[in-house]
Design a protein around this nucleic acid. Structure first.
Lengths: 198, 198, 198, 198
DNA sequence: AATGAATGAGACTTCATTCAT
DNA sequence: CATGAATGAAGTCTCATTCAT
């Protein structure tokens, strides 16, 4: 196989592995360089500093989801279906690369006093898009009026909690089960509620 | 005022402030000591190392909640009321001391490769107790049968997400509103669901 | 049993145990105090600082040997017998309290840039007295003329080497054997030499 | 002059100077780095920790002597000559670099509870080789049968004592004299003994 | 005299970043 | 562009010593 050209990408992937394994603060630049098969110095030709690597990891994930959302939002399907597809996509991504899931769950507040812009985008941007879909669903009469901002946050919290549970699940069968069942389980929970049906 | 007797407590409180402000990894032992008004060395008369401080912070919070749960569990009231009271208590605690909330939300994976025992207890123990309450509610016919393990995780994820939102909310009025409304909002969401009522 | 009155002595003995076990630099004042059954602060009522404890340990041993030497030197017996008795006494002391032997062997250069006076006394004073006995033996015609200064150093080096070997000997039977046989073995070696007798 | 290539060697030499001057425990890594003309951090590119430097110092000396012994042991000369040459070599090395001699004499028990492997090798390995040479001398009839293990220890103790004396000798003329005369003085002492010849 | 909590200087070590090759 | 040895600031922790009780 030809050597990977995009070294920035190599570094990102190596960093994901190392950070998932050790945590951001114990993921030294040396370890990342070694995992990427390059010299430490080379990292600094592609990233200004270590923070920027983490920033980039989040950016990539954010963009995947935003692009998916953008494509979704112009479709002419019920908003709840859009929601389901977005969650399905999120869990599918994590299933493909659980290490990324670990990083997103754990390293959200890692690097500094101030949250990195890319991470802020992730934490705020995704729920905000959920909120829009919920608003749309309310408009369509798919769900009843409610404080969609709060619901979006709650829903996203649930998603993250289950992803986190899955991502640290040692039993890989149960991991796949969790990640694949999660979207419909969650949506039916949030739609139907748990109230006893008489 | 008489000098505070329990220095371990002083250190815990100082550490909460410093960690909430800067994050565990930027909360140096020097800063913590300064915030506590003592010398660095004194910290090590009360804690074996820096990790143990974080461990202790979580332990205290865990115990508060477990004790509250224990008192609750013997009461003769509907399980859903117990649930509501537990959540109310949790949010009330955070309202009183938002810094602790920040620490609990942010520093869960901070210190090491391995999760600290006290933190594990927090992350696993609380949802487990929620699950028990949900099971009880199912038994009582208060809610319909469902995968209570998953629901507990989802519910706790929602709780944390809202707490996290609140805790970083600059507008303190809205913070109080979020924290006080959250329990009933969440429970009604989880019970009734969002489905449009015909 | 009545409480030991001489606390300086208690501390000395405790320090010997702790230093023998851990080495001077790992023998913290806390450990010594604990071993002596007193508070750290109390140490400083009897010793100016940690160094002085080591100094005192050597002093006591030096004095024992000097006093023994002084008593010996006025006796009217062959100088070689005096020598033998001095060595016998030295090894006997170590047999009684091997920990002291360990300290004397190991901690000679431990505490500081400058050698402590008490330790210097030990290192220089003892060989000097051996030298005097050798001179006397030469005068008496017990041994042939030789560079007694060098021989004294060599002899003392041998003594220390065997003591050191014995002191770290795990097998206590062999330890006793070494320490009890050493004086005559050494003296016969130094007197007769190893030359093959035709 | 071209810059020294082997930085590990530079550090070893600097450490010898600093440790000889101040003792291992007062030879801070900062001082060693300064003496080596490098930054502290650089030390840790060549040694895992401070102990390892001391370990390495002993290793180098051990190896010198073992290599010399190995070359010697295959020669077809009297065992006593081998012995003499080995001692001569040892004292010559110390004469060239007295600081190393100081370190070997003083820092034998310095670093820890447990003796470092390299130091153990030095303390046990050298006398063991002396013992072998003595055994050979006995076999050859060069010396009379005796407890060669004990004699080896005694002899090595004498050697170290004289080396130690020499190494701390301020008068450098007397130092050279001691170190150069020592081998034959010692061997003749050990062979002939001090007994008065009628 | 005895106590032992408090002190804080100082030790070792790590690691993100640089820069000469 | 790539390299990786060198850097040194900064962090954690220890421990001899002090002093108020």
């Amino acid at each position: 196989m030809a050597p990977r050209q995009d070294k920035r990408e190599d570094i990102r992937e190596a960093a994901i592995r190392v950070i998932a394994a050790h945590g951001y603060h114990y993921a030294t630049t040396d370890k990342i360089a070694e995992a990427a098969g390059i010299a430490v110095g080379t990292i600094y030709n592609y990233f200004r500093n270590k923070e920027e690597i983490l920033e980039y990891i989040f950016q990539v994930e954010v963009e995947k989801r935003f692009r998916y959302y953008d494509a979704l939002s112009v479709k002419d399907i019920p908003a709840l279906d859009k929601l389901r597809q977005l969650l399905t996509m999120h869990f599918a991504e994590i299933m493909v690369e659980p290490a990324v899931g670990q990083v997103m769950v754990r390293e959200r507040y890692s690097p500094a006093d101030q949250q990195l812009p890319g991470i802020k985008e992730f934490i705020l941007g995704v729920p905000m898009r959920l909120e829009k879909l919920l608003d749309e669903a309310v408009s369509n009469g798919e769900i009843r009026p409610c404080d969609t901002a709060i619901v979006a946050i709650a829903l996203w919290g649930s998603v993250e909690a289950i992803a986190s549970k899955a991502v640290f699940e040692a039993d890989s069968k149960r991991q796949r089960w969790l990640l694949s069942q999660a979207p419909s389980e969650l949506l039916s929970l949030y739609c139907e509620g748990m109230k006893a049906t008489k």
